[in-house]
Design a protein around this nucleic acid. Sequence first.
DNA 1: ATGTCGGCGCCCCGCCGACAA
DNA 2: TTGTCGGCGGGGCGCCGACAT
Lengths: 489, 489
Amino acid sequence: MWMTRVAVTGDRNTINPELWHACAGPLVTLPPVGSLVVYFPQGHSEQVAASMQKDIDAHVPNYPNLPSKLICLLHNVTLHADLETDEVYAQMTLQPANSYDKEALQASELALKQTRPQTEFFCKTLTASDTSTHGGFSVPRRAAEKNFPPLDFSMQPPSQELQARDLHDNLWTFRHIYRGQPKRHLLTTGWSLFVGGKRLFAGDSVLFIRDKKQQLLLGIRRANRQPTNISSSVLSSDSMHIGILAAAAHAAANHSPFTVFYNPRASPSEFVVPFAKYQKAVYSNQISLGMRFRMMFETEELGTRRYMGTITGISDLDPVRWKNSQWCNLQVGWDESAAGERRNRVSIWDIEPVVAPFFICPPPFFRKRPIPPGVPDDESSEMEIFFKRAMPWLGEEICIKDSQTQSTIMPGLSLVQWMNLQQNPSLANQTLLAETLQSLNGAVMQNLGTTDLCRQYGLHPQTLQHNNIQFNTNRFPPQAQEVDEIVKV
Amino acid sequence: MWMTRVAVTGDRNTINPELWHACAGPLVTLPPVGSLVVYFPQGHSEQVAASMQKDIDAHVPNYPNLPSKLICLLHNVTLHADLETDEVYAQMTLQPANSYDKEALQASELALKQTRPQTEFFCKTLTASDTSTHGGFSVPRRAAEKNFPPLDFSMQPPSQELQARDLHDNLWTFRHIYRGQPKRHLLTTGWSLFVGGKRLFAGDSVLFIRDKKQQLLLGIRRANRQPTNISSSVLSSDSMHIGILAAAAHAAANHSPFTVFYNPRASPSEFVVPFAKYQKAVYSNQISLGMRFRMMFETEELGTRRYMGTITGISDLDPVRWKNSQWCNLQVGWDESAAGERRNRVSIWDIEPVVAPFFICPPPFFRKRPIPPGVPDDESSEMEIFFKRAMPWLGEEICIKDSQTQSTIMPGLSLVQWMNLQQNPSLANQTLLAETLQSLNGAVMQNLGTTDLCRQYGLHPQTLQHNNIQFNTNRFPPQAQEVDEIVKV
DNA sequence: ATGTCGGCGCCCCGCCGACAA
DNA sequence: TTGTCGGCGGGGCGCCGACAT
C-alpha cells in the first residue's frame, strides 16, 4: 500500500482509504506520516473562509510572531467523512520542527514519487432521470462491465443483486438488471433509497470502485452548489480564524503539536505541503513576470488535464496580514478560460514550469545563490537562518542551477508590449511574432508545447512552418512525464 | 416591545423575536442591547464542548492574562436559526468595558425587571401517531380553541386551511378539521410534508404561537437526542476552544469588540449575564456549604417550575485553567432527582437563595464588607480594584446587607451531622430535629418554604405543629414574588 | 450508448371513524 | 380528551420498453 502509515480510523468506523481518495479527487495527496511538511496558516484560514462563505474580518488580530509558513513534522493523519454530507476531510497532527530528522526529510521526498495505484472505478454525474422518482440509475455500459460482477446472461432478463458500502461502512443494496431496447445496464430497486438517503440531486456524482478484496465501494461527490452555509451556530467566523492563527502561533512558540482539518473539496488549495515539494519548487523554479507554466486540474469524471497559463503578477495576496508570504503570491492568466473559471492566484509549488531557460525569465543578474523572486530579500535571509539552524544538512550547494544566462522576457518586446500581446492575441502582428521567434532560431526550446504556444497567439502550427522556424529539442532530452508534446517542424 | 433594540435580521430573513424566544424556552433571556454584561469565557468554552461532544483538550493553552470574567458592553444582538435544524442561537457583539456608562448600568438593571409578555401559544410533544405516515396531527382541544382561528361549525365537518410561518419565514399550509368520534381537532393535509421537511420524530415538539398581528407562527424544539456530533469537518475542537479564548483575550487587551454565538439549547448555562444580575447575586447572596436554594427549570411543555437543592461544595470547576472562577463553582444536590437528571454545578446567579439569615450559613465572622464565600480573597481584591477603576460610581456603599448576625449552619449540629441528615433524611432523629428547630423559636424565618423544609426531612407539616414550633414571619415582610408560601402555625 | 417519456401496476400515504386508555 | 389502529381509496413511486439523440 502506498501510504501504509496513515491511520484510517474515523469517529466510529474505519474509512476505506481508496474510497476516501476517490471521493477527494485525483489531485489530492496527503503527505506521508512522519514526513516533513510546510504548513501555511494563511491557506488554512482561506479554507475556513471558503467554508463559511465569509472573508476574514478586520476584527481578527494580526499575529506578528506567526510566520507565514511553519515547517512541521506530520505526526498523524486520520481520514474522515462528514456523517451528514459524506464530505471527506483529513485530520492531521503537526508539530513545528525543531530538530534534525533525516528520515522525515526523506519521507517528504517519498511524497513526490508516490503514485496512486490505479483502482478500478467509475464516476458518473447524475442526470435528471437518475435522480427523479420516476426510475432508476442508468449505468454506463463500460463501467458496468468493468466494475460490476458479471451477470448470468442465461437469465431473461439478466439481473443480480449488488451490494456496496459507503464511507461510513453502510451497506446499500441495488438490483442490477440488463434490459430495455436497446439493452442497457440499470440499477433499479434500492436506488431511490440511496438517492434520498444521501440527498442527491442532478449534477451530483456517484462513484463505484472495487477494492482489493473485490468488494464494491460507493462514494458521492456533490456538485459545487451554492454556499452550504454551515453558519455553524457554534462559533463566529472571527473566532474560527483566530482559533487557527492562535493555535498555530502557540504551537510555533512551544514546538508543541496541533491539529488541523484539511477539507480538500472545500479548500481552494492545499495548505500542508510536503517539504520536498516546496523545496523543489522554490529552489529550482525561476519565477518571473510573463513566465509560462502548466498546472493540473481535475476533469468532471475524476480525470486530470493540464492547462497552460502565464504569470501576470507577483505580489502578496494579503500585504497587511501576510507580508512576503509565498502563499498564492503568483497572479496568473489562463490560455483558455471563461472568466473566473480557474483560480487567478497560485503558489509556486502548484505549477509546473514550462522550462525554457534561455527564452523566458532568468533572474536580472547572476548570483551564486539566486534568491527566488517569490521570496523577498528580508524574509529570505530569515529563512536561510532558520534553514541553517533547523536543517544544517542543507549546505551551500543547494539551489544553484538554471541561471547561467540572462535575457529579457521576449527579445525585442517590452514588458508592456508583451502583456498587450498576452491579453489581445488578435492584435499581435504576425510579422512581429515571426521575427521574434526567428531570433530564437537555434535556441533551446525544451518542454514547451508548440501547439500551446501557437494557440496562445492565435496561430496554427502551419503558420510557423511557413516562417521556417526550427526548434531544437535534442540538447536536453525531454522527460516523458513532464512533456505533453514536442513538435519538430 | 420589551426589547426593542434587539436587531432581528437573520442571514437572509427577519427572525420573529416572539417565535425565537418561544423556541429558546421560557428561561432564556437576552440582556438588552446597550447594557453592561459579564462574559465568562469558561462558559463559552463549555458551550463548544457540549456542541462538539468533546471536552477541552490538554493541547489547548492557558491564557493566564485572560480573566475568568469580562465586564462588557453589549453592542448588538441578532437572532438566528440554523437553516438545517432550526436550532435557535443569538449572535452578540461584546466590547470589554473601559469607561463609565451610567446608561449601560441602568440598562442591565432593566434586564432583571423585564417580563416577557404572555403570547398565546401552545407546545406539544409529538406522539408516534403524530409523526407516523399513517395519519396527521392531533391538536389538543384547548390549544386549538385558543390559538387557531375559529371554525365555521355550520360546515360538516367543520374545517379550514391554516397557514403558519416558521423561523425562516417559510409558509406551511395545513388542513385543520374537527371530526371523529369523539370529535377532535386534527391537522391533516400538509402535516406530513412539515414532519418530513423538518425531519421530526416522536419526542420532538412543535409549538404554535399567534403574534400581535394574529398571524400564526410555527416552531420546533427537538428532543435531547444523542450528540448531533457536528464534527464540523472545518475546525478541530482544539482550535475552536483556542479561538474562543484568543478572541476574548485579544478583545480584553485592546478593549475591542468581539463576537460570540449563544446557543441556549446547546449551552449548559448562559455565559453572558446581565451585570446587575451578577452583581445582585454576588453581593447579596450569602453562600456557604449546606445552604438551601431554589432554582428554575423548564418543564416539558414550556412551563417553568422550581426545584430545591442544597449547596454541597464550593470549589473551582477547573482549578488549572480557571482558578478562582465564579463560573459554576457551586456543587449542588437536589431534593428530588434521578441521578444526573439535573446539573450538579451551578453559579451563584443561577440560584435563588432560600433566605433565612439567622438559620443558615452566615459568614463565620462579621465584616464591614463581607466577602462572598464564592469569591476567594485574592480574586476579590482584584475585582475591587477593577470595579473602582472601571466603575467608580460603585462606591463603598454597595454590598452591605444581610449580615448583621452570625450563627452556625444549624445549632447543635456539626457540619458532618448536618450533611448526613441531608443525605439520609430517614436517619434523622425526629427529636433531634425538633429540638434543633425549637432552639430557633422566635427567630426570623423569612422566605423559607416550610413544606419544602418538611419534605427535606421527610416530615409532614403536622409533625411540626405537634412540637409547637412558632414561626415569626412579620419582622421582614416577605416579597410576594420571591416567596412560594409562608406558613403560620 | 443513454437520456427522457408514456404506460401502468401496486405499494403505501394518508383520511376516516372505532375503540380504548 | 386523545393515542392507536383497521379499513380503504387514490396518488405517486417505480418498473417496463419506445423513441430520440
